[in-house]
């Protein structure tokens, strides 16, 4: 081997090439094993649900499941809307609307929380932003929602007012298909 000084270089090159090739292959092969943990096609297919709210009178609410989480659709009374509008922005713990259908920086005004053009309709994911419990309807000192786990209190627009939760209840993407039919997701 001593008389052919090119040999070690070639050997090193081949070993490095083989090593690099192997690493790339293993990395590529790893992807299916990671991606399989993502939601499967049947779960993704249910990512949109359609709800008929024709029968929901003012002061009533229905709760449906969307992506395994409860989504509440509330037909708010005039009083509730008034209370929501009366709150000053500086009194809010979380000043952002948290509305997937609005701008990410939108203020948490009552109008930005309610459905566009239908100020009485409030659609939101009923999962406490503290640690994921389900808040109770029509309870708490602000007349909205109250989370029994750690005492977070939300107002009539689902905004956090008191307690450990950091954010307003999130509003999922949705659209009105007809006047009384909502598609969530």
């Amino acid at each position: 081997m001593a008389e052919t000084p090119a040999e070690p270089t070639r050997r090193d090159f081949l070993l490095h090439a083989a090593g690099a090739f192997g690493v790339v292959g293993v990395a590529a092969a790893a992807w299916p094993f990671i991606d399989q943990m993502n939601p499967d096609a049947s779960t993704r297919a249910l990512a949109a649900v359609e709800v008929d709210i024709a029968g929901v009178e003012p002061g009533q609410a229905i709760t449906i499941m969307w992506r395994g989480k409860p989504v509440v659709i509330r037909n708010r009374t005039e009083k509730e809307v008034e209370e929501g509008k009366a709150v000053k922005l500086e009194d809010l713990k979380d000043p952002l609307a948290r509305n997937a259908n609005a701008d990410a920086n939108a203020d948490a005004t009552d109008a930005n929380r309610a459905a566009a053009g239908k100020e009485n309709i409030l659609v939101m994911t009923k999962v406490c932003t503290h640690l994921g419990c389900i808040p109770l309807d029509e309870s708490g000192e602000f007349g909205g929602w109250f989370c029994p786990c750690h005492g977070s209190v939300y107002d009539t627009a689902g905004r956090i007012r008191k307690g450990p939760a950091p954010e307003n209840l999130p509003i999922p993407p949705y659209a009105f298909l007809t006047d009384t039919k909502i598609r969530i997701g």
């Binding site: 040999e7 050997r11 083989a18 090739f21």
Partner: peptide, 20 residues
């Protein structure tokens, strides 16, 4: 295709290792 090219590289690498 990947495996065949990889096997080719490994074949020559093995030959180099065992040379001499």
């Amino acid at each position: 295709l990947y495996l065949i090219v990889f096997a080719g590289i490994l074949y020559f690498a093995k030959r180099q290792v065992w040379r001499g």
